[in-house]
Amino acid sequence: MYKLLEVKDLKKYYETKNGLLHAVDGVSFSIEEGKTLGVVGESGCGKSTLGRLVIRLIDATDGKIIFDGKDITNVKSKGSLRKEMQIIFQDPFSSLNPRMSVSQIIEEPLKIHKLYYNKAELRSKVRELMDTVGLACRLEDFYPHELDGGRRQRIGIARALALNPRFIVCDEPVSALDVSIQAQILNLMMDLQEERCFTYMFISHDLSVVKHISDEIMVMYLGLVVEKCKADELFEHTLHPYSKALLSVIPEAAIKKKKQKKLIQGEITSPINPKPGCRFAARCSYAGDICDKAAPELKEVTPDHYVSCHFVNEINSL
């Protein structure tokens, strides 16, 4: 399969008055065309920063982003990138301009990239896009505040689709929606992928949503990838202690089986000037002396299953 996006050792540091904040601290991955990479983690693990880095909404401190064979890490003209890479934002309330109507929001990218000069053509394109995402044409002169969350998120999707991109970063696109609406949007996104062979990077804190939509999953903790493998593999053979804990605490809407819960103690530590060693060590029940001294590397433990943990073999008796 063709690797549409390849990211190598990507880093993003922010200077704060308390020290250097390691938001993303050396992440590498690749996504094949037409596939979905799910990125999971709790708040502050750097998943949104990573999403913004790969489409160059923010500039990386270090590392390489290769899209469609070209190094785009330092490309100056981002305009041409936007035709290829788009983003759907989390909050359909704040990501739409309240003073623009639905059709104005959707046609804006088409106008900026001067794809249509003819007004009638532009209008029919907007209608086509609205139809694709399941928005009734009568809504084209409505303003965002007149619509509910699900419809607003459909506008965000239509806007991202307008330039017919190949790669879309979906930054928690369904987190702000009710479950019945969430399911509608997830179905829509998967149908669109099937039809047009989109490549998605799907960022979410909700493991069940990520499992549903992803081919591959990457679990992040404090700016680092702790585990990366195929979606089903992660749920069948969870290897990293953090992923195990994360999986065991998801409340499931079924009463038959009560899982053995692994409550992890404590809270996420600060990403500012992190100590050497494994970043999860302070909360990990398996941590030993080495965990405080040396940071574990992301290693291929079983075929296509990458884990960064010193004790992965011992914990899982591999």
Partner: peptide
């Protein structure tokens, strides 16, 4: 609800 245990291709919203 997407299920963690079963793999369903489409949800029934």
């Amino acid at each position: 609800l997407p299920s963690l245990s079963a793999k369903a291709h489409r949800l029934n919203p």
